[in-house]
Design a protein around this nucleic acid. Structure first.
Lengths: 263, 263
DNA sequence: CATGCATACTCGTATAGACGAGTGGGCAAG
DNA sequence: CTTGCCCACTCGTCTATACGAGTATGCATG
């Protein structure tokens, strides 16, 4: 005889309900996941099994799955099945992460931080070049036409989590170590201070949205995972904007943390 | 004869490409939107028109639309069509929004702020009650068992944009104006200071994720719109956590802004 | 002129079937 | 024992069809 189906965990449909069948199925799966009947990384019943269990067509079941995918709850793997999406370890960004004392050490802040939590960090796809400033960047940097752009991608345990571009005015960066692929210990902020631009404060703008297809690719995002878009401007003590850093982060990999004075 | 179809703007499929047909269609529509060939709020070609234009089945076209919906680019309206989703006006939250000087005025900060940008603000579904603290809230408030919870929803020009719950320890809030639906001028932070809890600083934790079905309902979110989840803890000058505010915001309605010292 | 209905067009839901392609296990051949 | 193939199972893509339900428009009726 046939063994009990994994779908035995699930209930029945309510034909009298005006809620669409595929929504009812999605509801039941979601609840089963929330209650822990399917755990992180565990496989859900296959499409065929759910077709049998509910007596609906395959497209209806797929429709249910696509809802849950949009919510970021599950992900499908071709040839294997549909799985409860595990919550990856998150990276916490504290608001003192640019404190001067953190710049004293040799290694990059990203690597050091990853080491302390036992993760393997990597930086790749480094690109450093001069280019025309976009309207937005030009405005933020105070009407510059061309900028030095530093692009890089950060990976944690092999997973891309962040993609960032720093823009600097050419009159500051050209010909300095900032224009080199490796900016040296303490990063470009340390170099900026050596060049006489003592940093005063940063401004960060935060948005969240769904990723573009490009971002899905570079960050290898599962469907249903938004991105956090952070734009940071660094100001020196003379009030000049000396750098703009445009960062796109996989939202499921980050918690940002800020401290605000109550004054 | 038939008039030129709106889909005349679009190209052809590449049958030799290994890219799925519905992705190719989504790509073309996305590009057309990005290039401004379809403007904000404008109607895309109907499913039937695209079926004719590309010579594919209706499900394939719908599949394309569902991709764009997941990206938050378009939204469908039953009986009307599929439209380019307009970017709503955003609310900017500055990091000095809790500065003491902002608490002097009579009206709530949310209303005042909305007035200055010419929007109509509303607060509704107010609920104030004592309840058991969740594990997380209890930890943040320093092991309290029960709390006063203040729930409210914020609307801008009739659109719900934010849903927030404040939690306060009972020994502070019980019997005070904080436990009333209307906490009075300056809000609960003003009341806390009057009660001798001079505020020292705030900590904010920020996450972004896709909304739960509940959140979709309360915030009337279109598909493809993530939420920003903000958890703020207020500390008094004695280092005690005196309030935790858990806020869920429609991500397309907000830009958060923070200022960090470089020290 | 105003009301209300018929109708055409829109997207929403659901079925049934077909083929393709990735994965993994078992079995047969070497 | 190892290699390699076949097969069963999985999700991915696509077609064709049907009916339901919301919207808007125009026309007929009062």
């Amino acid at each position: 005889m046939t063994p009990a189906l994994p779908s035995g965990q699930l209930g029945d449909l309510d034909p009298t309900s005006d809620r669409a069948v595929f929504r009812q199925i999605a509801d039941q799966l979601r609840e089963a996941i929330d209650r822990g009947r399917f755990r992180e990384g565990e496989k859900l019943p296959s499409e065929a099994e759910l077709v049998d269990h509910y007596g609906v067509s395959r497209m209806t079941v797929r429709n249910s799955f696509s809802i849950l995918q949009g919510e970021g709850l599950v992900h499908a793997e071709h040839g294997k099945g549909v799985f409860v999406r595990p919550r990856p370890p998150v990276r916490r960004l504290a608001s003192d992460r640019f404190a001067r004392r953190h710049r004293e050490q040799g290694k990059s802040a990203f690597i050091v931080e990853a080491d302390t939590v036992g993760s393997h960090a990597q930086v790749d796809s480094l690109e450093v070049k001069e280019e025309k400033a976009s309207q937005d960047i030009s405005t933020r940097l105070g009407s510059v036409r061309r900028v030095l752009a530093r692009r890089r991608r950060y990976l944690l345990d092999g997973r891309p989590v962040e993609f960032a571009t720093s823009y600097l005015p050419l009159d500051i960066a050209r010909g300095t170590q900032i224009a080199e692929p490796n900016p040296g210990p303490g990063g470009i902020y340390a170099r900026l201070e050596e060049l006489g631009h003592r940093l005063d404060h940063f401004e960060e703008e935060i948005r969240a949205r769904m990723p573009s297809p490009d971002e899905v690719k570079t960050l290898r995002l599962a469907s249903g995972v938004p991105v956090i878009h952070l734009i940071r401007t660094a100001f020196d003590t003379e009030g000049r904007a000396v750098e703009v850093c445009d960062t796109v982060m996989a939202a499921d990999a980050y918690v940002l943390s800020y401290q605000l004075p109550a004054t």
